[in-house]
């Protein structure tokens, strides 16, 4: 039954004070919110804090949500802001030399489909690892555009960018991701 309830219905019920509606919104979006947070702050425990803060902030301001954008767009905008604030407060991160030198193993795309599923998992792991090396905003835009399939207009709202800035950022983020994957592939081949 819960699956059939739209975000709008859940929001209306939550604003009326139904705790169950809040709980369903958390269940529906916890993976998306946490993934965006962890890709931006690069640390699971801190990402959990960011995700929790984002939900609490969203609930506090839920009565102000006017429904002009999708709820997910509004929520991701909060996550993006909370994550950036978290990163600003945080001391500069000291990257482990071991981490930087750790090669990202990117299997050959032309491999025959004997162990295709394993191959797919390994390629996902390589992408995941490469995204870890991206700056927060690059990781956010790649996640929002490709994984969450947000439009560029929505990304402009979430990240508070102009359309041309969003296009440039996406272009650069894609290039950086490609460079990381290629560099790592070369490093692992050596």
């Amino acid at each position: 039954m819960a699956e059939t309830l739209t975000d709008e219905v859940l929001i209306a019920r939550a604003v009326q004070g139904q705790q169950q509606a809040y709980a369903l919104l958390v269940e529906r979006y916890e993976h998306y919110v946490f993934t965006l947070a962890v890709r931006m702050v690069k640390h699971r425990e801190e990402a959990a804090e960011v995700a929790q803060d984002s939900f609490l902030r969203a609930f506090r301001y839920l009565p102000d949500f006017r429904g002009e954008a999708r709820f997910s767009t509004w929520l991701y905008r909060i996550v993006h802001t909370v994550a950036l604030n978290h990163l600003r407060k945080k001391k500069p991160e000291v990257h482990s030399l071991d981490d930087a030198a750790r090669p990202i193993r990117l299997p050959d795309a032309q491999h025959p489909d004997g162990a295709q599923q394993l191959e797919q998992q390994e390629r996902h792991a390589a992408i995941h690892q490469a995204i870890e090396h991206l700056p927060a905003d690059d990781a956010a835009i790649i996640t929002l555009f490709y994984l969450y399939e947000n439009s560029l207009e929505e990304i402009c709202q979430i990240m508070e960018l102009s359309m041309s800035n969003a296009k440039t950022k996406l272009f650069r983020a894609r290039h950086r991701l490609k460079t990381i994957l290629e560099t790592s592939a070369v490093r692992s081949a050596l």
């Binding site: 709980a23 958390v26 916890e30 993976h31 946490f34 699971r44 939900f55 609490l56 994984l147």
Partner: peptide, 29 residues
């Protein structure tokens, strides 16, 4: 193919009991 790979990377699972923790924090507020 590369786009499909980016689109299909699995979502990260939050820590166990995350939703309950959020609701508890919300109830406290």
């Amino acid at each position: 193919a590369e786009r499909r790979l980016l689109q299909s990377t699995p979502l990260e699972a939050p820590p166990a009991g995350f939703a309950v923790q959020v609701m508890k924090a919300w109830a406290e507020t």
